[in-house]
Design a protein around this nucleic acid. Structure first.
Length: 158
DNA sequence: GCCAACGTTGGC
DNA sequence: GCCAACGTTGGC
């Protein structure tokens, strides 16, 4: 089983929106970065666990966890000319972009902001904390994932 | 709003 | 294939 972190802007789609969705499940449409796509298409499997991260938020923070409940399938929003994520080079018979389905696992009592995470020794090499990191779908090591769950249980802000 | 760090595009 | 220009991401 692999572990991941997926970013979303809460003004677009927040973890609270996921909690309110039918079966607390959503398709993760709109990813338009090849590296992120490759992770979703080639490596994500049903049962993998995901940290959800709110970017461009106040403060930006890891806010909860989800699990993969459906493996990669074509992202239909790329075919829709009216959709903000429309991409004319993606065709239904040869799609460029893919998405997975996520189901909410839990919302942290306390969001874990970057300032909460940065001092944690176990997270020293975490991609999210790297300067200039922009990848919206990224692998997380098992120790990193577990360190974050532990912090979430503790309540990082005391 | 600023701007650093990326990714993509397109001329050559 | 190089690389400058441009667009986007995302913390602050």
């Amino acid at each position: 089983m692999k572990h991941w972190l997926m970013k979303t802007e809460p003004t677009t789609f927040s973890i609270q929106d996921l909690a309110a969705a039918p079966s607390q499940t959503t398709c993760w449409e709109g990813v338009r970065n090849y590296q992120a796509r490759n992770f979703m298409r080639d490596e994500m499997r049903v049962g993998d666990r995901v940290l959800l991260y709110h970017s461009n938020a106040d403060p930006s923070a890891v806010v909860g966890t989800a699990t993969i409940v459906r493996e990669a399938y074509p992202d239909a929003s790329a075919f829709n000319a009216k959709d903000p994520h429309f991409d004319p080079k993606s065709k239904p018979d040869q799609p460029t972009w893919f998405m997975v389905d996520l189901q909410l696992e839990g919302i942290f009592d306390q969001p874990l902001s970057l300032n909460d995470l940065r001092p944690v020794a176990a997270l020293k090499g975490m991609e999210l904390l790297r300067k200039g990191s922009r990848l919206s779908v990224q692998p997380v090591s098992k120790p990193e994932f577990e360190a974050i769950l532990k912090l979430a249980r503790k309540g990082a802000r005391g």
